[in-house]
Amino acid sequence: MLEIIQKIIFEVTGKSEVTIDTDFVRDLELNSFDVMNIVCAFEEYFQTTIPTRDVWKLHQVRDVIEYARERGLEE
């Protein structure tokens, strides 16, 4: 799952220094536009929809991995 997320982030933002502890805003300095682009790419890849209210709870890569695991999203 980490590799998929790294791939999506790289494709959308060009950022490659991504680990499980990476914080989207603090470490990658992403703004709302970047985050929403990543959300769209994630939704396309997994053929799912993340409720907007949930998007802003996903601060770090580990949050996304946990979110995907809880919802049974498979690579």
């Binding site: 536009f33 929403m36 682009n37 959300v39 769209c40 396309e44």
Partner: peptide, 16 residues
């Protein structure tokens, strides 16, 4: 402030 850069504009518009 928003820089103009490539993105899923149609998808973002429809989605958000």
């Amino acid at each position: 402030l928003q820089i103009h850069k490539p993105g899923r504009l149609a998808a973002l518009s429809h989605r958000f």
